[in-house]
Write a protein that binds this DNA or RNA. Structure first.
Lengths: 192, 192
DNA sequence: GTCTATAGACGGATAGAC
DNA sequence: GTCTATCCGTCTATAGAC
């Protein structure tokens, strides 16, 4: 791994568990076992480093293509996504870093929104109902992010101690409902 | 309103939309129209001020007592909670401040966890199923926090532009399901 | 209680030798 | 590319006059 990549990995880890302001360039350098000045050499400033470190990994979106022909699309989706987070520390780190930093940086929040929308559309676009698909995908995102938040960031014991399978079974049908179930209209009524 | 209270209100607002590190004591003083030294006089340091500003408002929990005897407890709960957030800027500010700061401060995360658990138990404890009630309330929390996150912090347009009623109608049945529906067992299977 | 002045630490960024 | 030295701004916190 090149030193440049070591820096990016170290930055992701630190941003992931301390947020932006609490990770210092010096700390990143120390973790990457690299001279602090080298970071400026490659990335000129902290914000550029942040963006480079959090740039979405394109492979990720493709991991969710072609969810069809299963009983429960929601369950299959949740299984793949939560399983992916759980088994792959790098992916999880990237996700928690995005979430943490997005709290205080609007440009990262925008990155997260765009990426999330894109990934959800790629994964679920072919199965979401035609009635206001954006709202449906947005609702799916609330549930997914809620899980990520409680499990990996707030670390609430009730959710942290669940197995992935338990979460998948709980959340899968909910996602199905958001994707294809009835939706309230502008007046807030479910069509009968 | 006493100057002390002005400081607390200003602190909440700034913590709420900038997080902890990016709000300075000077900025808080400026917004409260107060001398910076007065803050130290009352609260000695920034962390104490933070905790004082985010101390849960006890009235809040009582607002959700006695949800029973309705068709859909989840819908009623969502209506009260989301409506409360929406109509009451102070309450919303407190919530977003808690959420934002909890990302980077473990002690605030603990505060949020405890408060959230307490509030949910007070509101829904009497209607949640006997089978693993903590997990059920935790799942409810994931959905609620997910909505708060997407609507008020990430400000994703699909969710931000919904009416409260639309969200309530979408989320109500989901909460009902978490409260009393089937839950996967330790093996990740839904009992048949 | 109110305000000024300043201490003291930290962290991002730069210049420049090698 | 690598490293040292250092500048400069910012922020919390304190001391002390009024």
């Amino acid at each position: 791994m090149s030193k440049r990549d070591l820096i990016l990995a170290a930055a992701r880890e630190l941003f992931s568990d301390k947020g932006y302001e609490r990770t210092t360039m010096r700390a990143i350098a120390a973790r990457a076992d690299v001279d602090p000045a080298l970071i400026h050499h490659y990335f000129t400033n902290k914000n550029t480093l942040l963006m480079a470190a959090l740039k979405p990994d394109i492979d990720l979106a493709t991991h969710f293509a072609d969810i069809e022909n299963v009983d429960s699309v929601g369950t299959e989706f949740a299984r793949r996504l939560l399983g992916y987070w759980e088994d792959n520390p790098d992916v999880r780190t990237r996700m928690t870093a995005l979430l943490r930093v997005a709290m205080t940086h609007d440009d990262v929040a925008a990155l997260l929104r765009d990426f999330q929308i894109g990934a959800l559309r790629a994964a679920l676009g072919s199965v979401v109902a035609a009635d206001r698909p954006e709202v449906r995908l947005g609702l799916v995102a609330t549930q997914i992010f809620g899980i990520g938040l409680m499990r990996y960031i707030l670390r609430a014991p009730q959710i942290r101690d669940c197995t992935v399978d338990q979460l998948v079974m709980a959340v899968g049908p909910v996602i199905d409902g958001y994707l294809t179930g009835p939706l309230a209209n502008a007046r807030g009524r479910v069509p009968s």
